[in-house]
Design a protein around this nucleic acid. Structure first.
Lengths: 247, 247
DNA sequence: AGACCTCTTTGACCCAGATCAATTGGTACA
DNA sequence: TGTACCAATTGATCTGGGTCAAAGAGGTCT
């Protein structure tokens, strides 16, 4: 697909692998070993990184950019089943094939580990295995939280839920706490939002307009969003507990 | 809640823990150690086994009966996020609180391990940790498969999807292969089915009647189901690949 | 500047599934 | 044998979101 990304100069110290993904609590010698089998790859917006059913040669995490996990029915209906933001992990150690398409939504850089050596390392260092279990449990929680969104929320609540997730993730990476207005650029087209939420793009557009009219969000251009009152948004989303869900 | 189940005479040899859950590939001395911290509990139909937010003192797997994982919004809307059939595992090693309610749908017997000793054992025996990672990845796949059902399928397809899951799970436990008609008892009320599928109970009832009228299923009484042609049911479900999804 | 993109918004209409309500059937209990 | 209770069915009507169609709003290329 793509040559190891020579375009970026990232070193492990700015690679999110350090603070959120695999080696969060690793000892330095374990980090060392991860370093040795690490490499970078970059993909352009729109490119499919992994096709469902393909065998995956690597695992890794997102350094910059956005990707999505998508499932498609034969007649073309698609449902996004996961959103990969910087520092999120992709891959199924111990599994052969991919279960869904992974598609780059923006230009994206990934920090990869070849699968075989990674699995070997995992066997030798239980700490990495435990960390992976933890990450997988997080993803499972997020997936189940999302099942509630898909199954029971209205279109307006769905949009609000998605915005609040993106806002929180964005904030935790860039700025300080969630006090005061939050500002971010939507990394998704209306169509991608629709695929995530089980809606049509027209409904997404209408509900965005409605939330704007009601002052819940402010929009400059199509993508630049300001959220004056995060609490208000979360009420709209139907989860009043500021409950920590994580995508 | 309940005393360790003296009502059952199960020994580990008939406990599903052996063939599908934690110790599937364990050595005998590891099994030995699991035996030591194992105990049984039983719950009555309708009883809540664990409340969302409670701290959970145990992990375990279902020996007999059915339980569900359920999420509830403040206004009472509920979404079932998982179905626990015999041999399924519950619990989040390394996590404090439960993320959702676990409710016994029928009378149920569980094979439990106290959490602390189980976690200790997990640290000592990487094989158990790996087995857990595998199980969690399975659950994640199932959850994401279900996201497609919730987000993109019609009511009829949803019902067919649920029936085909239950039929396959049931068959793999009781009879031989999936050839010839399949027969089973629905372990869920129409309301529970609705909560699983993001529908109302009336819609579930109507679609069950429609599938019956069209000869896709046969019904005796309210719960006893015969599926004359499994392939037909799977077409109705919208997944034509006989794809292995596992609840 | 104009032609051509792709993404987005908005309007008009329709329908699958929700809602409200009445009826049926089974079974437990007195 | 009646009444009380629950799960399930079925009917009538309403509505949120889908569908189809037309425009607007930035971009980019020549």
């Amino acid at each position: 697909m793509n040559a190891p990304g020579p375009t970026i100069s990232a070193t492990c110290s700015d690679c999110p692998i350090r603070h959120r993904a695999v080696c969060a609590q690793c000892e330095s010698d374990e980090l060392e070993q991860l370093e040795e089998i690490k490499y970078y790859r970059s993909f352009e917006a729109g490119q499919t990184i992994i096709w469902s059913g393909d065998k995956m040669g690597f695992v890794g995490s997102v350094v910059s950019g956005i990707a999505t996990l998508t499932q498609t029915m034969e007649d073309g209906r698609t449902q996004m089943v996961g959103l990969l933001l910087p520092s999120d992990f992709v891959g199924r150690p111990g599994r052969e094939g991919a279960a869904y398409d992974v598609v780059a939504t923006t230009d994206i850089v990934m920090c990869c580990f070849r699968k075989k050596p990674f699995e070997d390392l995992m066997v030798k260092t239980p700490r990495i295995a435990h960390r992976l279990l933890e990450m997988t449990l997080d993803e499972l929680d997020a997936a189940r939280e999302w099942m509630l969104v898909l199954g029971r929320k209205t279109a307006r609540e769905k949009i609000a839920s998605l915005l609040s997730i993106i806002a929180r993730r964005d904030a935790s990476l860039n700025t300080g706490g969630p006090s005061g207005p939050m500002v971010f650029d939507l990394p998704l087209t209306r169509e991608a939002m629709a695929d995530y939420l089980g809606l049509t793009l027209e409904t997404v557009s209408r509900q965005m307009s409605a939330l704007k009219k009601d002052g819940v969000i402010r929009l400059e251009g199509k993508r630049h969003v300001t959220i004056p009152d995060m609490g208000r948004l979360m009420e709209e989303a139907g989860d009043d507990s500021d409950g920590g869900f994580l995508v």
